[in-house]
């Protein structure tokens, strides 16, 4: 943790956290340097809108289409893959209804898998070593901070965070 330079404030009040985020943005901190962390989603607050755009539903739909195609091909191939046709009950080899059922199930499975993988990647999960974290978040605090600020801007940022209503200001790394 100590290897990363950062400065952050801990807020108790989500409205104050909102002001903190905007204060940092007004100070000209780039969006990818601003870090916000909370133990609740705080929907309806401005900071909850920070990079909330995602094409996840479209990816899920695409995953569904791929899954369904795999399902149909699997259903088809496994029934015609024999030198002699394996007939059962007088049904056609690629029986429409059973193939549709398998296609459907694998469509849904494709969509589910894509959603999970997209979530893991785009939410940057499965990275256990986070550059910046404070366990006070789990006691209800909201962290608003800057990753890798320039040393010169330190006092300015501290003041901005404090005037927005930060309860505590902390720094990490060589600042």
């Amino acid at each position: 943790m100590a290897s990363v330079n950062s400065i952050y404030g801990l807020f108790a009040d989500p409205d104050a956290a909102d002001r903190g985020v905007n204060a940092l943005r007004h100070a000209g901190v780039a969006q990818d340097q601003i870090v916000v962390m909370s133990s609740e989603p705080h929907e309806g607050h401005a900071f909850s809108l920070l990079d909330h755009k995602t094409i996840m539903p479209w990816l899920a739909a695409l995953g569904g289409v791929v899954g369904g195609a795999c399902g149909f091909l699997l259903a088809r191939y496994t029934q015609v893959a024999y030198p002699e046709p394996l007939i059962t009950g007088g049904m056609p080899l690629v029986a429409p209804f059973p193939s549709a059922i398998v296609t459907y199930e694998l469509t849904m499975m494709g969509a589910v898998i894509t959603t999970v993988v997209t979530l893991l990647i785009t939410a940057r999960l499965l990275k256990w070593k986070q550059p910046l974290y404070d366990s006070e978040i789990s006691y209800g605090k909201i962290l608003v901070g800057v990753l890798g600020p320039s040393g010169a801007a330190r006092t300015d940022l501290e003041n901005r965070l404090r005037s927005a209503g930060a309860e505590k200001i902390k720094t990490t790394g060589q600042l």
Partner: peptide, 18 residues
């Protein structure tokens, strides 16, 4: 490695909706 960034919250909400 959950930290609770707005990015994670919004992705989680979206994933749960899907």
């Amino acid at each position: 490695g959950w930290t609770g960034t707005p990015r994670q919250w919004s992705r989680l909400e979206m994933a749960m909706r899907i």
